[in-house]
Design a protein around this nucleic acid. Structure first.
Lengths: 223, 223
DNA sequence: GTCTATATCCAGATAGAC
DNA sequence: GTCTATCTGGATATAGAC
């Protein structure tokens, strides 16, 4: 060991990768919570235990750090999505499975969902819950099912994918409001998430099974 | 006219209601664009032509002004919604009409949709795109249609309403991302909004027409 | 690589003249 | 009711020692 190394040991523990990770973790949590403008570098410094100036040293600026946070979140999102448990499209049950899988996947990835929502409002079209690869992946599964004749083929696979994502993401985004609404109406069911999912699956499943008929007046009662 | 009035005339035009409206208008636009933390009172002052201190004089604080902006937006949203053109539920066409009406209604109320999205992220459950009265109104129409036997009755009206809102609000929220996605895939259709709406209406319409059958393997091709 | 200290600016809010 | 001027704190970012 050279003299320099001995000297370095006296300095506070050096672990650049660990430090960067600590900063990114704290920043991600805070940005997801309060958005870019709602968080100060000081906040991140305190939450991560790393000094302000070191944050600037590693990332250059608050905005550059934000971009790094989002970039890392995209990677993790995609990694989790391809590694999720999944079933092969052999029958129509796969469709319900797909809807349900995505629904719970969104719940389990609240942080990135919030990050992407902030990003969307800020006009950033890079990070988003659909995330190009994930959405194309889903759409492709639907396409294949259509080719096999499992799903109606007169709806666009991509558009159907967006609808499925909408049903899940919207629910988790505004869930507190819905809970509040139900409470005000006097009902507050225990398994509200399952209940919503069951209803959505019902409707979507029937919706993708059959071709659309022409809509004609078909009153059940005469008036 | 008393001497006092003459003196007052020399002061810059006094129009408290006009001033307040100018402040609210500018604030609403900016808050919708950049969120609460992304806007300074100075920004609002410059955009409205009203001095900072006068803003504080009229609203007390930046946060109180924000609340006023949201409150006014709720009122306007609700007012617009009850005054929209609507049809009576005489046949199943009313359902497609309802979905389409809401879809374009959301497009035409971008400011309040953005405001409510910011508010949602900030943890405010008062302002939201569903907005209690509006969502109950929609759900009631669906309930009535169910009683008339126009829609399947084994799905909850409120849950169905939420799904319908999800389909529209999610689309407009992430529309720029979808446009970008389509472009990257080599397709960029002209009437993408109409296209999405057509697909959604198709699926939802079929989805609400029939009772759910038990899901059994029903392969079209044998494998 | 990591810290303390600090420069510089801008934020929300107030004082007080008119 | 409306303005100009100002207070005070907190923001991002940098300088420079170790």
């Amino acid at each position: 060991m050279s003299q320099d190394d001995v000297l370095l040991d006296k300095v506070k523990a050096r672990d650049p990768e660990g430090t960067k990770r600590a900063i990114l973790d704290a920043a991600e949590k805070l940005f997801a919570e309060k958005g870019f403008s709602g968080v100060s570098v000081r906040d991140i410094s305190e939450a991560s235990g790393v000094s302000q100036s070191l944050i600037h040293h590693h990332f250059g600026s608050k905005h550059a750090l934000y971009e790094e946070v989002k970039k890392r979140a995209i990677d993790r999102f995609w990694h989790r999505w391809i590694n999720r448990s999944k079933k092969m499209p052999h029958d129509l049950g796969f469709f319900a499975d797909g809807v349900e899988t995505f629904f719970w996947f969104v719940r389990d990835n609240e942080t990135i969902m919030r990050l992407s929502c902030w990003a969307c409002l800020e006009g950033d079209t890079d990070l988003w819950p659909g995330e190009k690869e994930a959405i194309e992946y889903l759409a492709q599964e639907i396409s294949q099912a259509q080719e096999k004749g499992l799903l109606r083929s007169d709806v666009n696979a991509l558009m159907l994918t967006i609808l499925i994502e909408a049903a899940s993401i919207f629910w988790w985004q505004y869930r507190p409001n819905f809970i509040k609404l139900f409470e005000e109406m006097g009902k507050s069911p225990e398994n509200i998430d399952e209940w919503y999912l069951k209803n959505v699956t019902k409707v979507l499943l029937c919706g993708v099974m059959k071709e659309t008929r022409e809509i004609k007046p078909q009153n059940n009662d005469k008036d």
